[in-house]
Design a protein around this nucleic acid. Structure first.
Length: 152
DNA sequence: GCCAACGTTGGC
DNA sequence: GCCAACGTTGGC
């Protein structure tokens, strides 16, 4: 089993939105970064666990846990001219962008903020706290996953 | 293949 | 709203 962190702007899509979905499940569409795509397309497995992270908000941080319930498949929003994430270069016969489905698992007992994560030396290799990191999907080592959950 | 211009991300 | 970081685009 693998561990991940996925970012979302709560104004766009929050963990509460995920929890309110039918089956508490949603497709993680709109990722338009090759590294993040590769992870979703090639590496994510059913049962993998995901930290749900709220970015671009007053108090950015990890707010809950989700799980991967469907492995990578073409992001159809790229084919929809009217969609915000439309990409003319993604051909349905040779899709450029992929997504996975995730299901709500639970909220954390409290938000573990980015600023708190930055104070822990043990997490200095965690991509989220590395300067300039903008990946919206990133791997989390089991060691870091366990450490972060123990902060809860 | 280089690199300047441009767009986006996301913390603050 | 600002701006640093960094990915992408496109001219050459």
């Amino acid at each position: 089993m693998n561990y991940w962190l996925m970012k979302s702007e709560p104004d766009e899509y929050s963990i509460d939105d995920l929890a309110a979905e039918r089956n508490q499940t949603a497709h993680w569409d709109g990722v338009r970064n090759y590294q993040a795509r590769n992870m979703m397309r090639d590496q994510m497995c059913i049962g993998d666990k995901v930290f749900f992270y709220h970015s671009n908000t007053a108090e950015p941080g990890i707010v809950g846990i989700a799980g991967v319930v469907r492995t990578g498949y073409p992001d159809f929003t790229a084919f929809d001219r009217k969609d915000k994430h439309y990409d003319a270069k993604s051909d349905p016969d040779n899709p450029r962008w992929y997504m996975v489905d995730v299901r709500y698992v639970r909220m954390l007992k409290r938000v573990i903020t980015l600023s708190e994560l930055k104070t822990h030396k043990q997490l200095s290799d965690f991509p989220l706290v590395r300067r300039g990191n903008r990946l919206s999907v990133m791997p989390v080592s089991k060691k870091d996953w366990d450490f972060i959950l123990a902060l809860e």
